[in-house]
Design a protein around this nucleic acid. Sequence first.
RNA 1: GGGGUAGUAGCUCAGUUGGUUAGAGCGCCUGCCUGUCACGCAGGAGGCCGCGGGUUCAAGUCCCGUCUAUCCCGCCA
Length: 610
Amino acid sequence: MLVYQEQAVFLASFIMKRTHNCSQLRKSDAGSTATLSGWVDSVRDHGGILFVDLRDREGLTQIVLDPGNSELEAQFGSIKPESVISVQGKVLERVSEAVNPNLDTGSIELHASELKVLNVSKTPPFPMDDTADKTSEDLRMTYRYLDLRRSSNLKLLKLRHQTSQAIRNYMDEEGFLDVETPMLFKSTPEGAREFLVPSRMNPGAFYALPQSPQQYKQMLMVAGVERYYQLARCFRDEDLRADRQPEFTQLDIELSFIDREDMYALIEGLMQRVWKDVLGVEIKTPFLRMSYFDAMNRFGVDKPDMRFEMELQDCGEIFQNSGFKVFKGALDAGGAVKAFNAKGLADLTQGELRDLEDAAKSLGAKGLAFIKSEGGEWKSPILKFFSDEEKAALKESLQIEDGDIVFFAASDWEQACTILGRVRLDAAKLLIKRGKLSIDPAAYKFLWVIEFPLMLFDEEAGRYVASHHPFTAPVEEDIPLLDSDPKAVRGQHYDLVLNGVELGGGSIRIHQPALQKKVFEEVLKIEPDVVESRFGYMLRAFEYGAPPHGGIAFGLDRMVTILGGRSSIRDVIAFPKNQKGQEMMTQSPGVATEKQLRDLHIKTVLPNKK
RNA sequence: GGGGUAGUAGCUCAGUUGGUUAGAGCGCCUGCCUGUCACGCAGGAGGCCGCGGGUUCAAGUCCCGUCUAUCCCGCCA
C-alpha cells in the first residue's frame, strides 16, 4: 500500500511535468497552457478568489484559483507555505490595474485547472524571507536546507558558481591545466595547525589534510606542467573568525618561466574577467602597487582599505626635542610617533573613545593619546606638554580643523603603525555611522602590496622565520644580504588586496637547490635532518632541472563574499561550520566508536573538566 | 587560552528605581472576505524569562557560577 502511494506520487510528478520555470512566462505566453512546479511562497485567500505565489529556483509566478471549482478549492485549502506543488492551467494576461511591476512574471498569471500537492510542508522554524537574515545563525544552520532555499541565498550559490565558472573559462583560455592534488598529505608542522588523519594501514602514522597544495604545485612545475590551477579545498585547524573556516577553497595557481610583472598582468586580467562576468563591472588595470613599508607607514596594515583617506603621518620630527616624555622616549629608543586626523569625529562619545582605546591597548598600546578640536579650541589631556611650535606644526601637518580629532601612537615603528591602523579602521566605522564618511558599496579598490620582508625575527623562537613561506625567492639584488642582514632582504612576494581584504598572495619561488638549502639551513636555521625529512624530495627535485616558477593563491570564499556584498564567508559556503568548527545540520564532528578507534590504533584522552 | 556582546512566545525584539496576571510585531490556529501580491478584518492558542546557585517579604530585573552563540585578541595566509 505504501509502495503504491509512493508510486502514485512518482507518477504524478511525471503526469504534471513542468513546462516552464517560475520566472519564464510572459505576456506573449497568454492563452497557452502551462504547468509549473515549485514551492508555495505565500497564499492569499480572498474567500472567493485565491492567489498562490509559486516559487522555484528561478523566480515567482502568481497562481490564481478562480471561484466555482469546489474540488480544486478543497485541495488548495490544504496547502501551506513551503509545500511543493505542481499546477497546470491557462496563462492569462493580467488586467492593467493588476500588473505587478516588481515581478518578472508580473504581467501574467496562471489560472489553475489542475493541482498536485507533491509534499506538504510543516511550518518552517524561521521566516523564509529576508527578515530571516536576523535569525540566529545557529538555528538557520541547523535547518540550512531551508535557509538556502530562500532566494537571496540561492542567488549567492549561483554567484559562487558564476565566479568559479568565470575563473575556469579564463584559466582555460590562458593555457592552464586543472590538476588535482592529494587531500591526504604529509604533516608539515611549520605554519598553521593541521587536521591529522590516522592511517589504519600504518599504525602510529598520520596523514595531514593540506593547508594548501603548495608543495605539490611546485612539483608540477618541475614536472613540466608549466601552467597549473585548481580550485583546491584547504584545511587549517585554527580558531575561526567571520572570514575564516576550517575548510575553505583556494584558487591555486602556479606557472613557469615568468616574473612578477607577468603574474600581475595575468591576475589583473583574471579579476577583470571575474568582475565582468559576474557583476558586469569593468575593473581598471593596472592595479595600484604599494610596498609593504608604505602600506604599514601610511595605513598601519599590510592590507590597506584604499576607499578612504585618513593616512597616518609621521610626527617624529615635530617631537624630536619634545618635553612630552612618552613621545620623546619612543623616539630616543629608535621608535616612531605616528598620528592621523579622524576628520569630523570630535563629537565621539566617551564610550566610543574608550572602545578605540581598548582596541589600541589590545595591540600593545599603553593608552591612546588624542587631541580634539572643538568650539575653536584644542582639548586633550596631553596638550599641556606641547610647546606652541609643536602645536603649530601639528596643525599644519595634520590639517587640523574644528571638529577633528587626532590620534597618536608612540612606540617602535611597526607597533605604532599597527595601533593606528586599527584605530583608523574603527574611526572610519564611527564616521560612516554618523554619515560623515561614505564608502561606495560598488567601489572596488584593488591594490598590489609588494616588497615584503622575506624574513621576520621571531623573538620567542630566537631565530628568523619566513614571513610568507620558505620557498619565496629573495629579490635578486638582496641575495647578498641573506648572510649579513636577513631582515633587510625583500622577498619576491605579492599580495592582492581589495577594499581592505587580503584576496590572495603568492611569490616567485626559489628554483635553485643550493639557494633553497641555504635558506632552510643557514637563514631559517632548520636542522639538516629535519630539512631532509620534510623537504628532501623537493631539494632533490630541484636538482633535476626545475624551471623558474611562481604562483599565487586566492581565497575563493572571500572573493565571492565581496562579489555578493556580504560580510561573512559563511554566507557563501553551502554548509559552513560554526565558531567551534561544528556543522549544525549534521552535528559533525561526532564521536568515533570503539571499533573505529581500535582499527586506527588510537586512544582518546579527554581533557579534565574542573 | 583571553576579552566584548547577546540569550524573554516558533522568529525578531520591548520589559521602568526589584512589586500583582510578562507584552508587541511577524508567524501559527479558527472564522469572514471575488483582484491580492508583506492582502485585509475578527477571534484564539502559544512562555522553565538559557541553566544552577545566592541576596530579598518579593528576581525577567541585583550578585556569583555555568552553558550556548557571535565578534575580537592570541593563533592563522
